[in-house]
Structure formats: structure tokens, C-alpha cells
Design a binder for these strands. Structure first.
Length: 430
RNA sequence: UCCUCGAUAGCUCAGCGGUAGAGCAUCCGGCUGUUAACCGGAGGGUCGUAGGUUCGAAUCCUACUCGGGGAGCCA
């Protein structure tokens, strides 16, 4: 008798198989017991009928407690009443290890309690579905980039200084020196792009911000592509094609999970390239029309972004922000030096910014001038300046925030559910 | 850092000046198609901590601790 994954059971109808997993939930009456079994690949209901098994097996079934690990021997049966279309008629049950007083009951729980029990919470159907979708999103991103001549390069996590200013960094000791956990691999990826052409990094980044909102984690994962001889406009095309590919991949491969999450997939089906583009100027004018207190030169707040994103049924690019409020490495628009060749991509439904990108400064003189304006230590950035001294080229890149993308595609209230063990303000356990 | 809400049984909550409550979970009993099953019974509490007001405080006041939502910052 072979061990079969629950997700593969529909291909074994009529066969006797072994399922190895855990008891998720149980209901029993005097002469019949229903066991909800999970094995990581899915959920299935096993039925134990008193008259059809030994007293010992029925007694075991009725006495099973939540999350007991079990090996089930049973026959796969088609059943219209089952959500997955199949059930298991149970013949034998072997208890691997018992479980007593499992904390997460089939009732509602508060966020604090669930986060304290995150190591167990991830067993829940909804959490499992989110982690599966996250994995598929990562697979889709890699699939797209790997098949479009990108090479993955891994930038360091321990860094000597910041990428975008010296605040909000997690510091750690590096023997006699101070080191910081990276908040972006971008500058290193620019160096890698000069070596390999089109590159991307995928890894964790860290921001010691005291943010307590549904869109923030202290540790989150970013995909950061960097591309040589690619302009700002060409970068936007790559961004929208990448994201459209990710959404269609998830729709194709995660229908079961999206159903568990009760996601309205009709909203996702509209996410096709090209995405609408508006300028920062247009966005400011629109917000002023809507009565927002904002003037040219201000950055957008979360409510501003939500109002703009709600105008569209797919993600929207906001381009060409004032040079003043953006990072030092962004290339000014040659036609209008007061704005830079950058764009943020806002997800629909109020999920906020999921991509930030720009064309980078390629002129060594201008970059040096920016260092001075921003009070950046030249010696720490000498290597970065070298990239402009030894065969500088026009190049662009962007950073895609994984957790916000997962939250949007899954339709979640909060990014804390998008990663197995979220790092939140003042929460480092488990 | 600021604004705002909260902390009572293992969990989710009610009680808001006069003897500590419910549902779920747990344990025991019943039930042949359950889907957060249902029915009966039992056990389960230093009401976040410290002080104050009062004849009397879970309840009112003060401080602190911890947590939720939001702002700023950002992906």
C-alpha cells in the first residue's frame, strides 16, 4: 500500500492508500466519526463507521485529539458532499504522537494570541494557503526574470553603511567595527549589473522603523532588478510585464488557495499590461481637486495613495517626483531637472506602494555633487563612484516588495500574515 | 515619537460601585453524514501591575507595563 499526498487523492479513487498527517478536526456521533486530516499538501475528510472497523479502531478514532499525528489506512472514495470531491473510508489508524490541549481551537482568536502561537498558527488552512501563494509568487518572479536573461546575484546582508541615509538601520557589531543589516541591495546590484548586464537580487531587507501599520514589517523580502542600457521608460514596461505575469501565474496555479482565502479573482483577472501612468504633477492636481491638503513638493501620505489607486482597476505608476524628495542616486529628467526619472507603482484596492524604481545617475560629476548635497561620506561610497569612472552606462532598476505584493494578491488585511514568522515592532518571538 | 482603543477562565468576550458570568476548548455521558455539528453534566479565576477614593472596587481616579488600529517613514 502506497503513501499518497492528500492533494493527489483524486487520482487514486477506488484504491486503498496510506495518508500520513495530522488530525485537524473531529466530529463524532455514537456510531460514526468524521476526521479532518491534513498532511501539508491539503485537507481531506476521513470517515470511520463503527460497524465496519474493529472496536479498537473506532475507539481510537473517537478519542483522537486535535493535531495528533496519525497514519491512516483507507480507501479513496468519490463523494459529492466533500469539498475536494473525495473522502477516505478509514480502515486503520496508527497514532504517531499524541497531542493534548492544542491552543488554537476552531473558534475565533485575537491577533496577539495568534502571533504568540505563530509556530502553530501556520498549520491553519488560511495561513497554509497564504504561504503557498507566496511561494508561487516567488516562483513566478524567478521564472519571468530567469527567462528574460536576468542573472541572480546575492548582495551582502551585513553592510558598512546605509543605502538611503543613516537612520532606521539595525546595527550590529562586526568585531571592532559597526555593521548594519542591509535595507537595500541596490547599490551592489548596480555594480553587479555592470558585470552581468541584467541582474536581480532576492533576499531579506531590514528597516528599524517604528512603524505600526498593516503595510509594514521590520524584516521583509525584496526583489531588486538592475538593468544596463535600460531607460526609465523601458524599465516600466519590464515592471508591468513582470507583475502581470505573476498575477496570471497565481490565478493559474493557486485556485484552491485563492478559494480558501475567499479572494475575488475577478479583480485580479483585470491586471494586464500596460498599466496606467500618471505624473507626480497630475497626481498633485488630482489630490487638490479631491480637497487634500497637499502642495507640489510634498510626498504622498498613505491616504493620498489610496485615493489615487482607487481610480484604477489595475496597478498605477506615478512618475517623475520632485528631485528634492527622492534618493540621491536618481537621474534628473534632462527636460526638467527639478524632477527625477522615477516611478512608484501603487497596487489597487489600497494596498499601497509595491514597487519603487528609477533610472540611476550615470554622470560621475553629477553623482559627486549629490554626495555633497546629501552630506554622504565620499570615502564610504568611493566604490560606487568607480562604477561611473570605469565605463558608466545608462541603467535603471527597481525594488519589488514581496510582502505587500502577497497581501494584495491574497486580499489580506495585514502584511503580518504574508511571511511565516513576521518581525514586527517589539515582537521577536517566536 | 504622537493620536486612539484595549487588558476579566486555556481562547473569544459580557459584567461598569454591592457574593465572578456566558460560549468555545478540556474531561465524562448521549447521538449513523457531520462541515466553527448538536444535547446533558463536571472541573476551571490573585479581574495586567502598583498606589489612591470608598463602609465596600473587576467597575471610579493616577502612574506604569503589555497589546491592537492609525499617523509619520517607507516596500
Amino acid at each position: 500500500m502506497s503513501t499518497v499526498l492528500i492533494k493527489d487523492l483524486p487520482a487514486h479513487i477506488g484504491q486503498r492508500v496510506t495518508v500520513k498527517g495530522w488530525l485537524h478536526q473531529k466530529r463524532s456521533s455514537g456510531k460514526i466519526a468524521f476526521l479532518q486530516i491534513r498532511d501539508g499538501s491539503g485537507f481531506v475528510q476521513g470517515v470511520v463507521v463503527k460497524d465496519e472497523v474493529s472496536d479498537e479502531v473506532f475507539h481510537t478514532a473517537v478519542g483522537l485529539s486535535q493535531e495528533t499525528s496519525i497514519e491512516i489506512d483507507g480507501e479513496v472514495r468519490q463523494d459529492e458532499r466533500a469539498p475536494s470531491g473525495v473522502e477516505l473510508t478509514i480502515h486503520q489508524i496508527a497514532v504517531v504522537y499524541a497531542s493534548h490541549d492544542y491552543p488554537i481551537t476552531p473558534k475565533e482568536h485575537g491577533v496577539d494570541f495568534l502571533l504568540d502561537n505563530r509556530h502553530l498558527w501556520i498549520r491553519a488552512p488560511r495561513q497554509r494557503a497564504i504561504l503557498k501563494v507566496r511561494a508561487e509568487i516567488i516562483k513566478a518572479i524567478r521564472g519571468y526574470l530567469d527567462s528574460h536573461d536576468f542573472t541572480q546575484v546575492d548582495p551582502p546582508i551585513l553592510t558598512p553603511s546605509s543605502c538611503e541615509g543613516t537612520t532606521n538601520l539595525f546595527a550590529t557589531s562586526y568585531f571592532d567595527e559597526q555593521a548594519y543589516l542591509t535595507q537595500s541591495g541596490q547599490l551592489y546590484m548596480e555594480a553587479a549589473a555592470m558585470a552581468l548586464g541584467k541582474v536581480y537580487s532576492f533576499g531579506p531587507t531590514f528597516r528599524a522603523e517604528k512603524s505600526k501599520t498593516r503595510r509594514h514589517l521590520l524584516e521583509f523580502w525584496m526583489i531588486e532588478p538592475e538593468m544596463v542600457y535600460v531607460t526609465h521608460e523601458e524599465s516600466l514596461v519590464i515592471q508591468e510585464q513582470l507583475l502581470a505575469h505573476v498575477v496570471s501565474h497565481v490565478l493559474e496555479h493557486c485556485s484552491v488557495e485563492l478559494k480558501v482565502l475567499q479572494r475575488d479573482t475577478s479583480l485580479l483577472e483585470r491586471v494586464k499590461a500596460p498599466f496606467p501612468r500618471i505624473s507626480y504633477d497630475e497626481a498633485i492636481a488630482f489630490l487638490q481637486e479631491q480637497g487634500h491638503q497637499i502642495t507640489w513638493g510634498d510626498d504622498f501620505g498613505a491616504p493620498d495613495e489610496t485615493v489615487i489607486a482607487k481610480q484604477y482597476d489595475r496597478p498605477v505608476f506615478i512618475e517623475k517626483y520632485p528631485t528634492e524628495i527622492k534618493a540621491f542616486y536618481m537621474k534628473p529628467d534632462p527636460a526638467r531637472p527639478e524632477v527625477v526619472l522615477c516611478a512608484d507603482l501603487l497596487a489597487p484596492e489600497g494596498y499601497g506602494e509595491i514597487i519603487g524604481g528609477s533610472q540611476r545617475i550615470d554622470d560621475p560629476e553629477l553623482l559627486l555633487a549629490r554626495f555633497k548635497e546629501h552630506d554622504l561620506p565620499e570615502d564610504a561610497y568611493a566604490w560606487y563612484l568607480d562604477l561611473r569612472r570605469y565605463g558608466s552606462v545608462p541603467h535603471s532598476g527597481f525594488g519589488l516588495g514581496l510582502e505587500r505584493t502577497v497581501a494584495w494578491i491574497c486580499g489580506l488585511e495585514h502584511v503580518r500574515e504574508t511571511i511565516a514568522f513576521p518581525r514586527l515592532l517589539y515582537r521577536l518571538y517566536p
